[in-house]
């Protein structure tokens, strides 16, 4: 199956610091790709470039075969994005905000109404539909953020730390939502919370210092621990991300480091 999101050799330099250094990855429809790395590894920067917000210094982002850099508007139209911290327009009501997002994305009339009804139902927003976003709990805010990301039925979803700052109950709800949404599109989820990886992700890419250091399923990843250490995601994560930047390919997916 061809990839709905294809990122090739992305690079970004901030004032002399190489935040992202040649990251490549691909997401297929129906798949949830976990994007792991310690804080400051370049996760959010990569997500911002993949979502079309931040222009990369070099590299390529293809959304369903559409070049994000050459033709950003059609590419963005096929993409939904939940930025880190799920920023929203606090002064708007849930309804007003989602209607705004739908309209800007070209929905109107009956199609807009059914899209609004659809996200209200899937994300269980009916009870807060007329409330101001500024007064919502974190859990509801995150659901509104997810609703704006899927209202136009995108082919690609980019979710930057969607469960960060939520309580355990809310985390379970959001994880379930991500699994549900993956039936229709390809999803890339960044996180540094390892516990949710096996529950949510089909495949994982681990980055450190702006480079990919490992790639594979959660089980394959858990095997990548030093000699004599019990295989676990946590041990593998620590091992992979603290040994300094290594060239992509030095760690074969599924193999031992």
């Amino acid at each position: 199956m061809t990839a709905v999101l294809q990122v090739r050799k992305l690079c970004k330099n901030f004032a002399g610091v190489q935040a992202v250094d040649g990251i490549s990855l691909a997401v297929r429809r129906g798949e949830v790709l976990g994007f792991l790395g310690p804080n400051g590894a370049g996760k959010s920067t990569t997500m911002k470039m993949a979502a079309g917000f931040l222009p990369p210094d070099s590299g390529e982002v293809m959304v369903c075969g559409i070049d994000m850099l050459r033709t950003p508007l059609p590419a963005r139209q096929r993409l939904g994005y939940l930025p880190e911290g799920a920023p929203l327009y606090d002064e708007m009501t849930v309804r007003g905000f989602l209607r705004f997002c739908g309209r800007v994305r070209g929905l109107r009339g009956a199609r807009l109404r059914s899209a609004l009804e659809g996200v209200a139902e899937r994300l269980q927003l009916a009870s807060v539909w007329e409330r101001g976003i500024g007064g919502l709990s974190k859990g509801y805010r995150r659901r509104v953020g997810l609703a704006q990301a899927i209202i136009h039925q995108p082919d690609v979803l980019i979710l930057d730390e969607p469960t960060d700052g939520l309580d355990p109950n809310q985390k379970v709800v959001v994880r379930q939502l991500i699994r549900d949404m993956a039936q229709h599109c390809g999803i890339i989820v960044s996180t540094h919370i390892l516990e949710e990886v096996p529950a949510v992700c089909d495949r994982v890419v681990v980055i450190a210092q702006g480079r990919v250091v490992a790639e594979g399923t959660a089980d394959e990843l858990a095997q990548q621990v030093p000699e004599g250490v019990e295989p676990s995601l946590e041990a593998a994560f620590r091992h992979l991300t603290t040994r300094g930047a290594r060239l992509q390919g030095a760690v074969a997916p599924g193999g031992r480091a």
Partner: peptide
């Protein structure tokens, strides 16, 4: 939600109302 919340003003607006709303994307 459908009854009280969502704006019905545009309900009758448009030739596209009858098309396959669920399946087709905004693209």
């Amino acid at each position: 939600v459908a009854g009280s919340g969502i704006d019905n003003r545009e309900a009758g607006n448009g030739h596209e109302a009858g098309s396959d709303a669920a399946a087709s994307t905004a693209a």
